[in-house]
Design a protein around this nucleic acid. Structure first.
Lengths: 99, 99
DNA sequence: ATATTTGTTCGTTAATTACCGAACAATAAT
DNA sequence: ATTATTGTTCGGTAATTAACGAACAAATAT
């Protein structure tokens, strides 16, 4: 017998997206990618005032949350928005923020 | 001479809001408050499967981020959405999510 | 075959977050 | 004056996050 669960899957899902968005660097990347289709992480390393290993971790966070995806274009990696999940996030925020 | 700052204040601001939204319990509270004007934390303690001290911390997080506000109605505390900041968050997410 | 480019992973450190129960403070009720 | 209610704060622990430089892996270019 399953215990009553007060927290919904939607609340968990939007919290997951929000958490990934909870850092200025990651918002910078998301803003960039949502406006310009794609970028290489090398471009970001040059612009952002953080070590490349740190950037790599932030990109991994966004990837793990499903907000972006990387495509190998050796020796570089091209990052873009993960369209399906991005749209899901849009819908969730629209709903929860009553926009 | 100020060093070039790549991260904008808006990115910092939305990241701050997103971070506060980055936990299922806090999303639960926000959803509740955005739909029903206000609640007492006692109500939440009964429903949510966490200790009251933990809930208190989550409410503090939301308050510190500016998303909710508490009004003393002794011996209880009435929580509501912080309207001004909530609207700012709405605008920011609208802009960043291109909704 | 070797060097260069590109980005991840590893190891480390410091800070923050999440959670609990117990103790505390403030007010209300008896 | 005591007791009960309500919620925060404290002390502690465990887990996660953020950051860095060094080492590594993979592929391209020389």
């Amino acid at each position: 017998m399953k215990r009553k669960e007060v927290i919904t899957d939607e609340q968990k899902k939007i919290a997951r997206y929000a958490k990934a968005m909870g850092h200025p660097i990651r918002m910078y990347v998301l803003e960039l990618l949502s406006n310009q289709s794609c970028c290489y992480s090398g471009d970001l390393t040059e612009i952002l005032p953080i070590a490349k290993s740190t950037l790599s971790q932030h990109l991994k966070e966004l990837k793990d949350a499903g907000l972006i995806q990387g495509e190998i274009e050796a020796p570089r990696i091209k990052y873009c928005i993960n369209k399906a999940n991005w749209e899901e996030a849009q819908e969730l925020f629209k709903k929860y923020l009553l926009i």
